[in-house]
Design a protein around this nucleic acid. Structure first.
Length: 421
RNA sequence: CGGAGCAUGGUGUCAACGGCUAGCACGCACGGUUUGGGACCGUGUAGUUUGGGUUCGAAUCCCAGUGCUCCGACCA
């Protein structure tokens, strides 16, 4: 993409009423636009990141048997009444409205009810199970207080998978696979080293649920990390009983702030029972479906990545989620240099490299500053000087110094091509 | 939902005593000089959150609304 064609611009200053680092940088660099508190639009650059993250998640969900679908955002009242979650006194973060004819509808804040109800159409025998539909979509929650930039919004983009199993044993087997799959996702988006499987409060059907917490000062949660065991415990469930359950020594725990970047939950028959999702087993007996839910906030993950890796100059994207692999800057206005730069851009694209080409007629300093702010992993500078030195200057975003490489070598190096991280 | 603070061009601003043309910087437009770290010069462009009130006169004082931020509560 040519940078002159990008309608967004970078800003030197962040809006003063935006305090959190993730939102400041994402707005300054042109990834996001704030519509109102807790509501952000994703601009072209931001959307590319969102899609990269979504793709990583999809691959892992598909690998454990997930099947993507798209739920509706509008929800009718009656299903929610079956689980007693329509009443504002029970769930206070609903956005509700009504149809012209007076029918009340809500804007989905989660889809357990909707999914359970939907599956009634398709599940009647043990042969129809298990099933693992998932959805990546915008969700709405009428938060009393949006905060921390993209971290807690009133409207947010996320992935939710629901598992429908014959019984608890089948559920547990999937649950363990989901756990591993989640860890792979965090590793693949670059957060593996800082993200811990964290024990949190469960529900009627399981003692614990599991959260995935990324260590960061920007976090809202407090967790206790046991580095040796590579697990953490959420402060809200930290008791002696839990410590002995998990065989964890209190002295090995380190308190830290963390961002909840995902959670997985055993739901049991909490939803299948009131909504009536059942199947016939081999003996012809009616059985309740055993469920689980598995969520990841994609916008929040994006914000977390910014929080964790940014430096004083701007964002530093891990290669796997960066909007582009290479940021190509051409310096100077000489036509000899320009034409070589244009050709390099064309050839990189032919080689399947995602490249943002800064061919604008502006000062070098501005290009460097923009490049650092936007945070694309590899910066390639082509200029009169670099050509004289034998090629282009290649520098990684997170390294101080670049080096001269021959244009031929750059083009032949497969590691810059898409799908080759 | 409880508490606190804030609101001046597209952005920033602890610029402006109740009083003269609302200042400065960034951005943007035009011209020129520059061309490896947001360069320089000149000429322009664009603003007092909304509604009331007090006053000869309000960005400034008062009332109400709206919005934003922070702390807390809440948060499958």
């Amino acid at each position: 993409m040519k940078q002159s064609k990008l309608f967004t611009k970078t800003q030197k200053f962040a809006p003063k009423d935006e305090i959190s680092k993730n939102a400041q940088l994402l707005i300054r660099a042109g990834f996001a636009h704030k519509e109102m508190a807790g509501v952000y639009s994703f601009l072209p650059l931001g959307l590319r990141v969102i899609e990269k993250i979504s793709e990583i998640i999809k691959v892992e969900m598909d690998a454990i048997g997930g099947m993507q679908m798209k739920n509706s955002a509008l929800q009718v009242q009656n299903v929610w009444e079956k689980t007693n979650r329509w009443d504002d006194a029970v769930v206070d973060n609903w956005f509700k409205t009504e149809l012209k004819n007076g029918t009340k509808v809500g804007l989905a804040f989660t889809h357990e009810e909707a999914m359970t109800n939907l599956m009634k159409n398709f599940v009647s025998s043990y042969k129809d199970l298990p099933a693992y539909p998932y959805d990546i979509r915008t969700m709405f929650r009428n938060e009393t207080r949006a905060k921390s930039g993209l971290m807690r919004g009133r409207e947010f983009y996320w992935k939710a998978l629901y598992s429908f199993s014959i019984d608890e044993a089948q559920h547990n087997e999937f649950y363990e696979r989901a756990k591993k799959s989640y860890q792979k996702i965090y590793k693949n988006v670059g957060l593996g080293a800082k993200t811990y499987l964290t024990f949190a409060s469960g529900g009627t059907f399981s003692k614990y649920s599991h959260e995935f917490q990324t260590i960061s000062e920007a976090g809202e949660d407090i967790i206790y990390v046991d580095e040796e065991k590579n697990i953490a415990i959420n402060k809200e469930v930290l008791t002696d009983e839990v410590l002995s359950d998990l065989n964890v020594n209190k002295d090995n725990l380190k308190e830290t702030k963390a961002i909840e970047v995902g959670n997985i939950f055993s739901l049991g028959t909490k939803f299948s029972e009131p909504i009536g999702l059942t199947y016939k087993n081999k003996d012809g007996k009616e059985k309740k479906v055993f469920m689980g839910s598995y969520g990841i906030g994609i916008g929040r993950l994006m914000g977390t990545i910014v929080e964790v890796f940014a430096d004083d100059k701007g964002i530093v994207w891990p290669e796997s989620v960066a909007p582009f692999k290479i940021h190509l800057l051409v310096l100077g206005t000489q036509s000899v240099v320009r034409s070589q730069a244009d050709e390099l851009y064309r050839k990189l694209q032919e080689a399947g490299v995602e490249v943002l080409y800064d061919e604008r007629d502006i000062q070098p300093g501005q290009k460097f500053a923009d490049s650092d702010l936007i945070g694309i992993p590899y910066r390639v500078v082509i200029s009169e000087r670099s050509l004289k030195d034998g090629g282009v200057e290649l520098k990684k975003r997170n390294e101080e110094k670049g080096k001269i490489v021959k244009i031929k070598n750059l083009l032949e190096n497969k590691k810059y091509a898409r799908n080759n991280n």
